[in-house]
Design a protein around this nucleic acid. Structure first.
Length: 597
RNA sequence: GGGCCCGUAGCUCAGUCGGUUCAGAGUGCCAGCCUGUCAAGCUGGAAGUCGCGGGUUCAAGUCCCGUCGGGCCCGCCA
């Protein structure tokens, strides 16, 4: 063991308490604030554990006191002295270390600092994200970001500990892989030694983890970096981390159980929150029917009510014709919304028309003296009362209705439901509502190209009862695919995979992939499948999104050390950058930019 | 590719109807004073291409057009 140098830390700033009083100790850290009283100087010294006040008193050390006058924000220092209890009236109750302070005998400036471009003090106003990203190494020094980094680390440890207990092996897969046709655009890497050939950075290790099942790994996991060249969002970065998992000889039930256990372990080990056991479940069809979305937020109610049969009996043409043409009329109830006036409702309608494909919004204010609505005249008293009864609306509530094709009704009421939950303050603080959404459709109609696309991915096993519908009624085929949803956010998606060549062949042909194309694109995978592939399946929870929820952060960038902006740039390093012509020549790559102006 | 919001001192922001209360506040920074502060205090000081370019006007931080940068959303993300 190396000898401790005189300047090296013996204690952490944030850890010292009354019980440590009397001890000689050394702190290493950053000068956060300096309060210079002339004869006496106080410094808030911070390391990653927190903050402790250190006092420079000339009667303790004239030399240290003299030198402390030159300290500035974010100077890196080592201080040694005796930890003392503060007198009763000088205790700072807002500080974990507020009952003690270090009387400094020795100060060493390990490194001075430029004045930071923004304050790193917790209480100060946060700098703009533009400037935070440019100086990310300073931003990460703030208490907020240090907490996020620490919590992310805790979550990663919880994942590894839990999956290890469950018998999973952590296996790393290549970042340089073969380009395979998947959903998103690929990031490509040119090969120097293979002119004109490219690697693709994996959008996920999907194919590799299935090959690991063929390889007999049986239980695999990886905190896997996934790269997709698509436009960014609040919860989408060019590279993100998935808890990628795959299991052999399992049913859907096994995967759901392991995943629930994983989520419960993460929430418990990081923030001490107990997620329900088991998670509630609903089918995809049920989620769409009850909430208008495949990822409903179950922290609040406001379920949708189908009124199509009643609406068909009224005189309101918009309603009757919607139902006659195969559409729907559905409603949701806004508690306490009856007070909204006509102007307010016009505004809400206009907004809904702008943001969704809905053509209008019908409403009934349920007042104590009776229903009030522009469309009341189209309803008999009896029909109106049946309708209100079915929605469960109480006096003081507002019933909001949309009539249209089912997908438009779902889109509009889902949007309305989420907006109203925020506006009406229906979302309980600090609550987590997990949910399994099961039985996703196998295929989705691609209207633009007039063909069927895989909803999840082409290796996903159809529901055993629906296999005979693949060719005859593809829209009805359910997939053995499942999403884990928390608070209306899709946090993970997975499926049981196809391990039989014949079924795989039928899926490919439904997707318009010829055997020749399949051979060309996935030949190595299909060949592998012929050598004793066990039944298998998996899931891939999004690690960044999980940590974002645990930290209570509004976006994924706050829980990533070095995120990129919406234009996929790193403001700190300047990536992506132009590169030297010679490098491009080595790679056999020529840049062909569109002409400027 | 499209829609919306933002850009003024190092930082956070104010700036009304376009007009010598329009170059401002707080904080930070620099200097001096100060032995119990913890957002220390007091005194003084420095600090601006009002993102950039163009236009309208007698006059533009303010209005218009374009552009750059940041954010939110749609498309996209199996």
């Amino acid at each position: 063991m190396a000898t401790l140098q005189a300047w090296q830390r013996t204690h952490w700033c944030g850890d010292v308490r009354k019980g440590d009083v009397g001890g000689e100790m050394t702190f290493n850290g950053w000068v956060r604030r300096r309060r210079d009283h002339g004869g006496l100087i106080f410094v808030d010294l911070a390391d990653r554990t927190g903050l402790c006040q250190v006092v420079f008193d000339p009667s303790e050390s004239a030399e240290a006191h003299e030198a402390a006058g030159g300290l500035r924000s974010e100077y890196v220092v080592s201080v040694s002295g005796v930890l003392v209890a503060r007198s009763e009236e000088t205790i700072n109750p807002n500080l974990a270390t507020g009952e003690v302070e270090l009387r400094v005998r020795r100060l060493e400036v390990l490194n001075p600092s430029e004045t930071p471009p923004f304050s790193l003090v917790e209480e100060d106003a946060a700098a703009d994200e533009l400037i935070r990203l440019r100086y990310r190494y300073l931003d990460l020094r703030t208490p907020r970001m240090q907490q996020n980094l620490r919590l992310r680390h805790r979550a990663a440890q919880a994942v590894r500990a839990y999956l290890d207990r469950q018998g999973f092996w952590e296996v790393e897969t290549p970042i340089l892989f073969r380009q395979t046709p998947e959903g998103a655009r690929d990031y490509l890497v040119p090969s120097r030694v293979n002119p004109g050939h490219f690697y693709a950075l994996p959008q996920s290790p999907q194919i590799m983890k299935q090959l690991l099942m063929v390889a007999g790994v049986e239980r695999y996991y990886q905190l896997a970096r996934c790269l997709r060249d698509e436009d960014l969002r609040r919860d989408r970065q060019p590279e993100h981390t998935q808890i990628d998992m795959e299991m052999a000889f399992v049913t859907r039930e096994d995967i759901l159980n392991v995943t629930e256990g994983l989520f419960r372990a993460i929430w418990r080990d990081t923030i001490g929150y107990e997620l329900p056991d088991p998670f509630p479940r609903m089918t995809h069809a049920e989620a769409i029917d009850r909430y208008g979305t495949d990822k409903p937020d179950l922290r609040y109610g406001m379920e949708l009510t189908d009124l199509s049969d009643l609406a068909a009996q009224c005189e309101f043409r918009v309603f009757t014709s919607a139902v006659q043409t195969g559409g729907q009329v559905k409603a949701l109830v806004a508690p306490g919304g009856a007070q909204w006036g006509r102007m307010e409702m016009d505004r809400m309608t206009e907004e809904l028309q702008r943001e969704t494909r809905a053509k209008g919004l019908a409403w009934i204010a349920v007042l104590a003296e009776g229903p009030k609505s522009p469309i009341a005249k189209f309803f008999s008293e009896e029909l109106m009362s049946t309708l209100l009864q079915r929605t469960g609306a109480q006096a003081g509530d507002m019933v909001l209705m949309v009539a249209d094709r089912p997908d438009v009704v779902a889109e509009a009421l889902d949007r309305l439901r989420r907006k109203l939950a925020l506006r009406l303050n229906l979302i309980p603080e600090g609550a987590f509502a997990p949910l399994w959404v099961l039985d996703f459709p196998m295929f989705a109609r691609n209207a633009d190209e007039g063909r069927w696309d895989a909803e999840h991915h082409p290796f996903c096993m159809p529901h055993p009862d629906d296999i005979d519908l693949i060719e005859s009624d593809p829209g009805k085929v359910r997939a053995q695919a499942y999403d884990v949803v928390v608070n209306g956010d899709e946090l993970g998606s997975g499926s049981i995979r196809i391990h039989r060549r014949d079924i795989q062949q039928r899926i490919f042909s439904m997707l318009g992939i010829t055997p020749e194309q399949a051979e060309e694109r996935f030949g190595f995978l299909l060949k592998a499948f012929e050598y004793g592939t066990p039944p298998h399946g998996g899931i891939a929870p999004g690690f960044d999104r999980i940590v974002m929820w645990l930290c209570g952060e509004p976006n994924i960038r706050e829980v990533m050390a070095f995120p990129k902006t919406q234009t996929a740039q790193c403001l700190m390093s300047g990536a992506p950058s132009m590169v030297d012509e010679r490098l491009l020549r080595d790679l056999h790559v020529r840049v062909d930019l569109p002409p400027q102006e």
